[in-house]
């Protein structure tokens, strides 16, 4: 193995709760180790150089969606980003735009997602008559189940929201995450909502007709969800209501 590189991290630092603190970029150096991810690097920086450094990780396996940040201009999950992906060894880290900043690289995506969920009623609205858990479940076509799961893989990381210029310009826009979830429930045969019901929620400027098809969502989604296709589907569906 060749000599280990020295990585240069340029990290956005700002504590909004600290009076007088101003946003700034701070540079740190770290010796790269084989297989190093941004998760490992940030923890090393916190443990050895600056214990006040704020960032969020939970599963550190690309599953929970906690750690999205902007890495060299591209919003993605930090836990599964290898430092080896950056040949010049310069890594610039910024918090996801479009969310409340807690501090440094930590943003409040949880609050955003919960509010979105309440605003758009993002849960299954089943037929309440059909709820005997002791009896055999209602059958569902295997293809439908597969399709539902494909749309359900969203991890609410917030990358699509941060990558969407429409969302950045208009705060009330629901973004790709909201529309992907609507599309998921719209597809679900167990959901009793009609196209009209969905139109009430997203058939407006803050919903599917506010989307300007900039496709930041499609190009950055860490789970490769078919945002472009699903938003187009919803647009056609809603336009025909």
């Amino acid at each position: 193995m060749s000599q280990a590189r020295t990585l240069t991290f340029s990290i956005f630092r700002y504590d909004p709760q600290e009076s007088g603190d101003k946003p700034k970029m701070v540079t740190y150096s770290l010796t790269e180790a084989p297989g190093m991810t941004v998760f490992i690097a940030l923890n090393q920086l916190r443990e050895t150089q600056d214990p006040s450094l704020q960032f969020d990780f939970v599963c550190r396996a690309g599953i929970c969606g906690s750690c999205a940040m902007v890495i060299n201009g591209f919003p993605t999950l930090a836990c599964r980003t290898l430092t080896a992906n950056y040949p010049d060894g310069h890594i610039k880290l910024m918090p996801l735009p479009g969310f409340d900043l807690i501090g440094d690289l930590s943003v409040n995506t949880g609050k955003f997602m919960r509010e979105l969920s309440e605003r758009l009623s993002l849960w299954l609205h089943p037929n309440s008559a059909d709820n005997d858990i002791h009896r055999i479940e209602a059958p569902m076509s295997p293809e439908e189940a597969t399709k539902l799961y494909e749309l359900e893989r969203c991890v609410e990381c917030g990358v699509c929201v941060s990558a969407c210029a429409t969302k950045q310009m208009r705060d009330t826009f629901v973004g790709a995450v909201g529309m992907m979830k609507i599309a998921r429930f719209e597809l679900d045969s167990r959901d009793t909502r009609t196209a009209d019901d969905f139109y009430h929620v997203i058939g407006n400027q803050d919903g599917v007709f506010g989307c300007m098809t900039l496709l930041g969502c499609q190009d950055t989604c860490p789970k490769d969800l078919p945002h472009m296709q699903q938003i187009a589907y919803l647009r056609r569906k809603m336009a025909s209501v």
């Binding site: 299954l124 009896r135 479940e137 799961y149």
Partner: peptide, 14 residues
Amino acid sequence: AVRELAQWGVPWTR
């Protein structure tokens, strides 16, 4: 529990 979860929206593989 499995059946209840199906009513809550889990797309169990069929």
